[in-house]
């Protein structure tokens, strides 16, 4: 019996879809069977981020309405053994699926998969309610911005009210240099307000934009900082105690070498 995790944020554009794709792929890399569910009906893009758009035949709404079997709608990823996507419908709106139907689909999926990860739409309305209906755990994504943290706080309150207790936090797009200069909220600032456990911190990384535009993930990239951060998150979800990586470490090989040999 698998586990259903919803990835949510309140605010749009903070990295839910990116996190869903990369955490899912990260868990698949470790040998687990993963189903990603795009619950952002009408604004689907998890399929695009994963480069699976051209393989969609049936979608979540078709499954909910019994137009096809769940198995028929699931797309198998070719790069990551064990990774599957249940795409959202592009043409319908959020009312096309009811929370009850979402619950049922999640129940079926977790029979088959170790992890079911739901990419939640922005906002706190019907789409959000659908996305969390079948979830047992929640990951809240925020960026180090006051407005995003405020929305994350709001969402955590709603999750708690929906009995999704102790959501875990992912801080995305952190820029260590800006934090050091006092121009960006620190990890501590954010935790102080939200008072939830930290699951991981993803640095701002151009590589994410590059891979996303290619329909690829970053988590398999051994050289990228954000890839490492996502791998760490996957390991923490699996219960390994992985310390926070040193975001201050310089990406530049030359300066890193100097540090290693003690020149700083």
């Amino acid at each position: 019996m698998g586990e259903v995790i919803v990835i949510t944020s309140g605010k749009g554009g903070v990295g839910k879809t990116t996190a869903t794709a990369n955490i899912g792929a990260g868990l698949a890399l470790r040998g687990y069977k993963v189903a990603l569910v795009d619950a952002d009906i009408g604004l689907r893009n998890l399929d695009v981020v994963l480069g699976l758009e051209n393989r969609i035949v049936y979608d979540l709404v078709d499954v909910a309405h019994g137009h096809c079997r769940l198995k028929q709608a699931l797309i198998k990823d070719k790069r990551f053994e064990g990774l599957h996507l249940l795409p959202a419908a592009q043409t319908k709106d959020k009312t096309a699926v009811k929370p009850e139907q979402m619950k049922e689909i999640c129940l079926q999926l977790k029979e088959e998969f170790d992890y079911v990860i739901i990419d939640c739409p922005a906002g706190i309305e019907q789409g959000f309610k659908n996305a969390i209906a079948g979830a047992e755990k929640a990951i809240v994504v925020t960026t180090p911005e006051v407005s995003a943290v405020r929305d994350a706080d709001r969402v955590i309150g709603l999750l708690e009210a929906a009995e999704l207790k102790e959501p875990k936090l992912v801080i995305n797009r952190l820029r260590p240099k800006m934090v050091r200069q006092g121009d960006m909220m620190t990890i501590e600032d954010i935790i102080e307000i939200l008072a939830v456990d930290l699951l991981g911190v993803i640095p701002e990384d151009e590589q994410i934009i590059v891979t996303t535009n290619r329909g690829d993930t970053v988590v398999q990239d051994q050289r990228s900082r954000s890839g490492e951060a996502f791998r760490n998150i996957a390991r923490r979800i699996l219960g390994e105690p992985v310390p926070l990586m040193d975001l201050e470490r310089d990406g530049n090989l030359f300066t890193r070498l100097r540090k290693i040999i003690g020149l700083r």
């Binding site: 405020r150 929305d151 706080d153 709001r154 955590i156 309150g157 709603l158 708690e160 307000i193 008072a195």
Partner: peptide, 24 residues
Amino acid sequence: RTLRSGQSIFYAGNVIVLGDVNPG
């Protein structure tokens, strides 16, 4: 409990919060 953003308490009387009252 902590009152998070978007949560509110209206009460005809005194209110004691054993927790934080977050922004919003």
